[in-house]
Nucleic acid binder design. Structure first.
Lengths: 106, 106
DNA sequence: CCAATATTTAAGTTTACACTTACGTAAGTT
DNA sequence: AACTTACGTAAGTGTAAACTTAAATATTGG
């Protein structure tokens, strides 16, 4: 989970995700969008994002095509929702415990 | 916006938010939960979180009471939702543009 | 006013990590 | 088999930021 936040918390990585939001791209095409950092740097960022489960890689010839993996964002998204209204979240948690109790009974 | 992510992307700060999720706490009470770092370190983290709009401060006597500010999370939350299904997000954006166009006409 | 409590601020140190250059690898082409 | 294309990986460097100790500030109580 924390891996997710760490991965997001770097401007260039965040920009990469924005790019991939629209369409899948090869490592090279992604790197073309960054004039301030070198291609290996982009490659390293892709590694971090992949490791965090935010993107997936697919090989085509000598190229590697990357695309976002939506489910990689879901845990963090849910967690942030928990901050939106702490009291509601606590109620939700309690409700879920009740639910489990019920299931154990049946 | 990026301030928000940066603020979240530090384990101790994240832990502070988890603490404040349940109840508001004074700086001292918060610091008591961290044995690995000193009180000034916690104070600095509180500063970052406050600066990012994730928490708010209230003074009572010599104490400072902190609590989470839910709205500080909303922008990031919305943004992450955008990654959940990129295609839907694009449709949403298009719809919003249409909406604006309509408003300009009327 | 002086002391105590609760906390932040300042200054300097340490550490994590983003970056670069150089090299390695794997697939396709001649 | 040698070359090219498209990458990733390794190793070392520089810098931002998290941390510590020491000092400053603000509020309360005697």
């Amino acid at each position: 989970m924390f891996e997710t936040i760490q991965a997001l918390a770097e401007p260039n990585r965040f920009a990469i995700l924005q790019l991939l939001k629209n369409s899948e791209l090869s490592a090279g095409k992604i790197a073309d969008n960054f004039k301030d950092i070198t291609r290996p740097a982009v490659s390293q960022h892709l590694g971090v994002l992949k490791n965090a489960g935010l993107i997936v890689e697919r090989r085509v010839g000598t190229s590697r095509i990357y695309r976002v993996q939506p489910k990689g964002f879901s845990k963090l998204k849910t967690l942030l929702e928990g901050f939106w209204d702490p009291k509601l979240e606590k109620l939700k948690m309690a409700a879920e415990k009740e639910e489990k109790k019920k299931r154990r009974k049946s």
